[in-house]
Design a protein around this nucleic acid. Structure first.
Lengths: 206, 206
DNA sequence: GTCTATAACGAGATAGAC
DNA sequence: GTCTATCTCGTTATAGAC
């Protein structure tokens, strides 16, 4: 069960990335591939190949099969995005500007990936709404976490709790929708405009 | 090629819905199923069954196979949503209120369908961004059409063209994102809050 | 235009040696 | 924990009778 994450590369060379265990590599590959191709568009064999693991290892760590893998992949994307969001908004005294900058950084990442690496949750979640309850609820938790990060930052900047709660909803919704529009149209424009409008909206509540 | 759309039900009884030809039934079924399950989650056999057609008929009308079917389905959803949007914003002297009401009506439709009937384009488009260029560009056209409807209504209400263009981007992005969030969380809240914030944002530009 | 049968392939999942 | 072989089923797509 437990693996030493440093079984090789022991003498701490300049290698920046830690050596991932098999389970972690599988999770990372599943998250990345499902982010790009969705649940049905991603095969378990493809995940195993991308993770440099065998099919047997995948089912060893995830006996629940593809569904379990999908929920774990969404949890992974949840944490990843929450950290980025927290880092961007954490100690900002001007949350409106911080949110706008974060939206532009999403456009940067998206353009770098040629518009394929969008939200790590929405693609997987959308196609499985009425069909895979565990996947759907994992996605709902993720959205909730992200709203908490935004709402906390807004409250810390002096915005009343109820306003902060509602603004957090619209900030996350608009970022999601603008990222989707940017992917589909292959353009930074939706996210850049969303940055401007979200800043204006947040500032109206101070 | 051409079919009489009234080959039966000739005496114009009180039947409200027109009799659809085979091709139209296939398009409608494909649009509905891909809206719910995405491109990869929807099988051609399932489409044929839902449309009361045979597999042979599907390939007769759509020799390009699943890809062609998907682009036609997106075009269908495009027109459908553009009409609803146009009806809601067409002759409104208060576009901010009209947009808010429309967002709430989206929440109504979503709740009625138990959160499965979301945007007729985004689910199909998202999973195919880096993989099916024809599908992606059909989705991009749809988003463009919808923005034109919004931007036209805003311009007619006296908002300068550049502001109207940018607002249309955010209106569509936010509606998309809020609908996605509502589906995932099984709640009207994202769309109801988006309605309020979009109205406030639009009013700030008058 | 509609229907059935089937080809060709890949999917998710399992078994069991090592 | 890892690997390979395999089972079973469903998929897209095609062929050809009617």
């Amino acid at each position: 069960m437990k693996e030493s994450p440093r079984s090789n590369a022991e003498q701490a060379g300049p290698a920046p990335e830690p050596v991932l265990g098999t389970r972690a590599r599988i999770v990372r590959a599943a998250s990345l591939l499902m982010q790009r191709q969705g649940y049905d568009g991603t095969g378990i064999k493809q995940i195993a190949q991308e993770a440099d693991a065998t099919l047997g290892s995948v089912y060893h760590f995830f006996p629940g099969g593809k569904q379990e893998l999908a929920t774990v992949a969404i949890d992974h994307g949840d944490r990843e995005f929450a950290e980025a969001l927290g880092a961007a908004l954490g100690d900002a005294d001007d949350p409106a500007r911080a949110i706008a900058d974060f939206a532009v950084s999403l456009a940067d990442r998206l353009a770098e990936s040629h518009w394929v690496d969008g939200c790590p949750v929405s693609t997987t979640a959308l196609g499985s709404v009425g069909r895979l309850p565990d996947v759907r609820s994992a996605a709902a938790r993720a959205f909730g976490h992200w709203r908490e990060v935004v709402s906390g930052a807004l409250a810390e900047a002096g915005i009343p709790a109820q306003d902060a709660h509602e603004l957090a909803h619209t900030v996350i919704s608009t970022l999601e929708g603008a990222e989707l529009a940017a992917q589909v149209s292959g353009s930074r424009e939706p996210l850049e405009i969303a940055a401007k409008h979200l800043a204006r909206l947040v500032d109206a509540y101070r």
